[in-house]
């Protein structure tokens, strides 16, 4: 059955709403919200990564930079009312978290646009190395920026009351569900569009795409900006989730590794691949953290990544498609 784009949007918004309402009605232990938030965050990150990595063919190891840029944008906006009051005696209401998310998206989107210009000269492994180096540059800037706490980090006090009722973690969980719905919807819309086909042509052969009339640079810029913006939006609620933001954790390599591993394991050719990969790996990691050791997380990811790259390079979605072809 072929589901139209508008119907798909209706369906995922409905699924997201039911998911949030059901969780509020059934889950009482806050731990599940904390764990679920991380899995949802990875759905956003891996879906965003896949727009550039899976659809366009540019491997980005700089997820940490875009994610942290979103988090630090939120931290700056969190401090802004107090700073304005102290310096200029201006009274400003606290900035709502949804506004911080939009701001984080804008900052990381602009960073993504800048990264897009790297694709003028860098492809393949060189682009990947450049994005890794980019993370180090952004992290160094943050480490030396005293306003946001520099290397020692910054404490963020959550607002006393959460909108939508319930505790603040439930609010964060609801917002991350919304972001996951939006990012999956965007990815699926791109995948089924003329724009998506153009991105795929760039991934397959950039010279041939250009010779076929595809404006490759413009499309890569849109792809990097959109991917970066979604990563930044995923990072913006982080200060309120951890309540203590420092460069070491917000630029953690785990974000980059997971956001690459999840689409690879799930399957990079389709929007559902990163979702499957995130739910699978995210859940395994959360289970391993509470049952064995949190240090085991990246080991699990590494082993699974190697297995999938060798045995099923097209991920779980690829395996299912191959099985269906055999059955047909």
């Amino acid at each position: 059955m072929r589901v139209s784009n508008s119907l798909f949007w209706v369906l995922i918004v409905a699924v997201g709403t039911v998911f949030v309402v059901a969780s509020r009605l059934t889950i009482t232990n806050e731990y599940f919200y904390f764990a679920g938030y991380v899995v949802l965050e990875y759905i956003v990150l891996s879906t965003a990564w896949n727009i550039l990595g899976g659809y366009t063919g540019y491997t980005n190891f700089g997820t940490g930079a875009f994610f942290a840029a979103g988090a630090y944008s939120a931290a700056v906006l969190h401090k802004l009312p107090a700073t304005l009051h102290k310096t200029f005696d201006i009274t400003m209401a606290p900035v709502p978290l949804p506004v911080m998310i939009v701001a984080g998206g804008l900052v990381s989107g602009l960073m993504g646009l800048g990264t897009g210009y790297l694709t003028l000269r860098l492809r393949g492994v060189f682009f990947a190395i450049a994005t890794l180096a980019f993370t180090i540059v952004v992290q160094t800037l943050i480490v030396n920026w005293d306003y946001v706490g520099g290397s020692r980090g910054i404490y963020i006090i959550r607002p006393a009351n959460a909108p939508l009722g319930g505790g603040y973690i439930q609010y964060l969980f609801s917002l991350m569900t919304l972001l996951a719905v939006v990012s999956v919807g965007i990815a699926r819309t791109i995948e089924r569009s003329r724009f998506g086909l153009g991105l795929n042509s760039i991934r397959d052969d950039e010279l041939a795409a250009e010779a076929s009339g595809v404006p490759t640079l413009r499309m890569k810029l849109i792809s990097t900006a959109l991917s970066g913006a979604l990563m930044g939006m995923a990072g913006a609620p982080l200060p309120y989730y951890v309540t203590y933001l420092d460069p070491a954790s917000s630029f953690n390599l785990a974000y980059a590794v997971n956001s690459v591993a999840m689409p690879v394991i799930g399957g990079m050719q389709s929007w559902i691949g990163p979702v499957i990969g995130s739910i699978l790996l995210g859940t395994i990691q959360q289970l391993a953290t509470v049952t064995i050791s949190s240090a085991l997380n990246l080991l699990i990811v590494g082993v699974l990544l190697i297995l999938f790259v060798v045995i099923a390079p097209n991920g779980i979605v690829g395996l299912v498609q191959a099985w269906r072809r055999r059955e047909a």
């Binding site: 153009g198 795929n200 042509s201 991934r203 052969d205 010279l207 041939a208 795409a209 076929s212 009339g213």
Partner: peptide, 15 residues
């Protein structure tokens, strides 16, 4: 330089 992930129809659809 075909677009190897696409069908032949999609290869000519791009231009």
């Amino acid at each position: 330089k075909p677009f190897h992930s696409m069908s032949l129809a999609d290869n000519v659809r791009i231009p």
